[in-house]
Amino acid sequence: MKPKIGIFGLSGCWGEQIAILNCEDQLLDIIGAVDIVDFLGGSSVNDAESRLLVSFVEGSVANAREEAKIRQIRERSDLVVACGSCACFGGVSAMDAPFERPKVIETVYGSNGPIKSWDIGPHRPLSDFVKVDLAIPGCPMETTEFVRAVSALLNGDMPLMPTYPVCLECKMKENECLLVQRGLPCAGPVTMAGCDARCPSHNIACIGCRGPVEEANMASIEQIFGDKELPKEQIKLKLRVFAAPVLDRTEERG
């Protein structure tokens, strides 16, 4: 019998579920290798009960309902994989982490807005609630990394995820450096690779969508931005767009 897997979305844009459906060349291989039994984004008939080998979860946890959902997913799965930067770090919707929710809602919708009726708290990464076995960051995640992960997990291995920054892949592609040669605010040196330097390869400075590398040297890159007459705070603001909860915590720890 093929192993059963589930694909779930919490608070996110469904980008990862679409990325999975976009694995056009591999979809037949995927469904040949696994039984996708619970996937609301792909099927209206789902099995919400059976035991799963792997659950792939996109999106952040934003309220009690989603917290219960991720706990239930964890309960029924051998492995939980966080897919995309929302699941891994909180993502774009967690950018307001330091602000109070009612204030944010009031600013956006005015004082007559849905302040009380909205059951939405701060968006937080899955790992704040349950054990996450593997994180595939990206906004959205790269389909190649997803397929590699499925294939490795089916062989009983943990896929090797990049731990190095975007610059490594950018240099391998022999791009001219946007930061050094053109003074553009590239977040590549502090951002996790795996995208094959997608943006710098199109002459667009990296915006940090895959989250910070483990030992991001923020003090030094701020200094470098300053020396290039870029606003120093810009680099942190960039990284906060996708990984505010993680960055804020690193800062608290010092």
Partner: peptide, 10 residues
């Protein structure tokens, strides 16, 4: 100062 970006080795 080093960012551990590895550009120098690449």
């Amino acid at each position: 100062r080093c960012l551990s970006c590895s550009s120098c080795s690449m």
